[in-house]
Design a protein around this nucleic acid. Structure first.
Length: 394
RNA sequence: GGAGGGGUGGGUGAGUGGUUUAAACCACCAGACUGUAAAUCUGGCGCUCGAAAGGGCUUCGCAGGUUCGAAUCCUGCCCCCUCCA
């Protein structure tokens, strides 16, 4: 089965990087695309209209969370997830497989299903692969994900293999359970950081013929080098005419590295979570805006940024909002980080089309520091070098 | 004027002879955060030397005293609060 109303077309490539478009019943999405995370049917603190203005083309919801609250039947009764949350653009939902991982002790896996203890009220619930697909169909989303099992990278080889095999069995069952052609269903490749297992998994999952494929099980404890390498080798195992979705990845530097390795779609809670905790993205790197050193910063969070926060407010003010625990701070930082990421995606798409993606990637990565500490150390190094006047200092 | 209660680190506030540089919380400082159980979590927070381990000094209104040892006991003083006149 292929999804009617769903399509994907690559329109330009530059090295492995590709620019294209995903067509869905709720509109087209330019790729590479970043999906803001709306776990419970809401990107925390940001309205759908704002998301649209930020340049988000598609958002991600979570089946497990929506199933618990408000309940699949409520969303269904309210007209589906699009109508319910007031977002008329494309929506992709995660199956709930990740919660079996992130909720840890509150979830138990059997060959057949995952049994959850609700984090809300402790009640017991079970997700079979069939139910996960059915729930997503009933939510009415554009892209559904197979129920899979994600394991931490530091797990044993055996646990990674077990999770991969279970993911495969479940993928076949999800594929079988998929009824509504208008909604696409993506398969997920697992296999940790093992090249052999990734190969085995890609062969199995692509053999089931899905409209799109996800790379799962990354950004869960491995090094960046391992993650990039795994993305790179998995990319070569996926068909070129289907979208490739790298699940759970969205740190700015990772987006660039992984677009360079042929990924088309991303989602990540990082930009919004980090924002609520007071960190903002800038071209120099991630910065903790509530730090005392920004108290008197008159300029915006990011010079030249066109987001609501940067256009209307100073960094010193945003810094104050965080220290004063004002809700506006969370919103402004979230909006800024999402805009930062969307602008990054826009720029990458442009550079792929222009054929100088590598130059962009090199420039961006040469400047960007992933953490506040990293950013400041780089700054200090530059300063030392400048002070050394080129003699002695490395 | 009389009777009672109380003064603890930036704040609130535990602690009534040793294990106390003094709980806890707040504030403050710094960091982390990757398919969101997160507006969360972690660390620091007297001064000083040290990269660190660790060392030195100084601390519970003020001044004396008792004691091997005091935020804790005694004396005096200074402030604050409540009630009665």
């Amino acid at each position: 089965m292929t999804a009617a109303g769903f399509g994907f077309r690559v329109e330009a490539t530059d090295g492995k990087a590709r620019e294209g478009v995903i067509a869905t019943p709720h509109g087209d999405v330019r790729t590479p695309a970043f999906m803001p995370v709306a776990t419970q049917g809401s990107v925390k603190g940001v309205t759908p209209q704002e998301l649209r203005e930020l340049g988000a083309g598609i958002v991600l919801g979570n089946t497990y969370h929506l199933y618990l609250r408000p309940g699949i039947e409520v969303v269904e009764e309210m007209g589906g997830l699009h109508a319910f949350m007031g977002w008329d653009g494309p929506i992709l939902t995660d199956s709930g497989g990740f919660q079996a991982f992130s909720l840890g002790a509150m979830a138990k896996l059997t060959d057949d299903e995952v049994v959850f203890r609700s984090h809300v009220d402790g009640s017991l619930h079970r997700f079979t692969p069939e139910a996960a697909v059915s729930y997503q169909e009933r939510l009415g989303v554009d892209v559904m994900m197979c129920l899979d099992q994600c394991v931490a990278t530091d797990g044993s080889e055996a646990s990674v293999r077990e999770a991969m095999n279970r993911t495969h069995r479940w993928a076949a069952r999800c594929r079988e359970a998929w009824k509504r052609e208008s909604q696409a269903l993506f398969g997920i490749v697992q296999g940790g950081i093992s090249a052999e297992m990734r190969r085995e998994s890609a062969v199995f999952v692509t053999g089931l013929d899905f409209p799109g494929y996800a790379v799962g099980g990354l950004a869960v404890g491995e090094t960046k080098a391992q993650m990039y390498e795994t993305v790179g080798l998995t990319e070569g195992l996926l068909p070129g005419d289907k979208p490739r979705y790298l699940m759970g990845v969205g740190a700015p530097e990772d987006l660039v590295e992984c677009v360079a390795r042929g990924m088309d779609m991303f989602d990540c809670a990082l930009p919004t979570r980090v924002a609520r905790n007071g960190a903002v993205f800038t071209p120099e790197g991630r910065v903790n805006v509530s730090a005392a050193r920004y108290r008197l910063e008159r300029g915006p969070v990011q010079e030249g940024c066109d987001c609501l926060a940067c256009v209307g407010f100073s960094m010193g003010y945003v810094s104050h909002l965080f220290r004063a625990k004002e809700l506006l701070g969370l919103r402004l930082a979230s909006i800024h980080n999402l805009r930062f990421v969307q602008r990054l995606m826009e720029e990458m798409r442009r550079r792929i089309v222009a054929g100088d993606f590598d130059a962009f990637a090199e420039e961006f990565l040469g400047r960007y520091r992933p953490t506040d500490e990293g950013a400041r150390m780089a700054q200090k190094r530059r300063w030392m070098r400048a002070r050394g006047g080129g003699q002695g200092a490395d």
